[in-house]
């Protein structure tokens, strides 16, 4: 990978080359900075800025326009501060997306690595089971699961994580198959290293970049699906804020106060776009293109 990273500097440093390496750096810096900003605003913002509580607003202050005193983005029909709801909603969206990805990465990554490393019957069994899961329109079953478990943040995480496992497992298995016969892996085995140690110390660090890149691409998707669940009333239960249930709430008064839908939509779009751009850049670098 180091070779790939260094490649552009090997070419003689003409002006065009230099500007291109700048562009390449920007591809990482811009979405990274946006994400830092979003994460910082959502998690640190409510602590340090004078933002009102996202729930329990005064009904007398409902539907205030933007830039009202004390309410930068105005208030919703229940008198809650829109900015506060966006920030707290972002907290739960990001928490869910990170938790789902971590669970999926750990469970899927382990399953895939085991499957690819062991081969044989274990491999066939695991892969057939995953085929079934992959065939599933996951949003559909997630809806059913979310409803049956009852809407809550933990249940949303569990339902979404369950369906992120097969994709991680596939990536992990493919990477493992590629690495299995590499000299360093064979050497580790010949040294008499125990199987779990080979997996953990030799294989895992090498398949991790691919899994993390995939996870980055998945962040946007999970945030969108979480929004869909909340939109349908099966995710974060109101009055607790989430981008999805804010959009659903705003839909009711779409013709009168469309701005209430616009804010959470913009937040959702910017976050997902930043994750997608970062994921794409990482993927392009790892695949050496």
């Amino acid at each position: 990978m180091a070779v790939v990273e260094a490649a552009p500097t090997l070419v003689s440093g003409t002006g065009e080359e230099r500007s291109r390496s700048w562009l390449r750096a920007l591809e990482l810096i811009v979405p990274g900075a946006v994400l830092l900003l979003v994460v910082g605003a959502c998690f640190v913002g409510p602590l340090v800025l004078p933002v009102p509580s996202p729930v329990g607003g005064n009904i007398l202050e409902s539907n205030l326009p933007a830039f009202s005193a004390g309410h930068l983005l105005g208030t919703d029909p229940n008198g809650n501060d829109v900015l506060a709801r966006i920030l707290h909603g972002g907290q739960s969206s990001l928490t869910i997306a990170i938790a789902v990805n971590l669970l999926g990465l750990l469970a899927g990554g382990t399953l895939g690595a085991l499957s690819g490393y062991a081969g044989g019957v274990l491999d066939s069994v695991i892969m057939r089971v995953l085929d079934v899961l992959i065939a599933f329109p996951s949003l559909v079953l997630t809806l059913a699961v979310a409803q049956s478990l009852g809407p809550s943040q933990t249940n949303t995480i569990l339902a979404l994580a369950f369906f992120s496992v097969p994709a991680f497992a596939r990536i992990s298995r493919a990477a493992t198959l590629r690495l299995r016969e590499q000299p360093f892996m064979v050497a580790a085995r010949l040294c008499g290293t125990r199987g779990w140690r080979v997996l953990l110390r030799h294989l895992a660090p090498n398949i991790m970049p691919q899994l993390i890149t995939f996870g980055m691409l998945g962040m946007g998707i999970i945030i969108v699906i979480e929004g869909a669940l909340s939109f349908l009333g099966l995710g974060i239960p109101p009055p607790a804020p989430s981008w999805g249930n804010m959009i659903a709430q705003g839909q009711a008064s779409l013709s009168a106060t469309p701005i209430l839908v616009v804010w959470p939509c913009v937040a959702l779009f910017i976050t997902v776009l930043a994750f997608n751009l970062l994921g794409e850049t990482l993927r392009a670098r790892w695949s050496g293109r």
Partner: peptide
């Protein structure tokens, strides 16, 4: 990056 429900609305 646009969720389909956002686009729909």
């Amino acid at each position: 990056s646009v969720a389909n429900y956002v686009l729909a609305l």
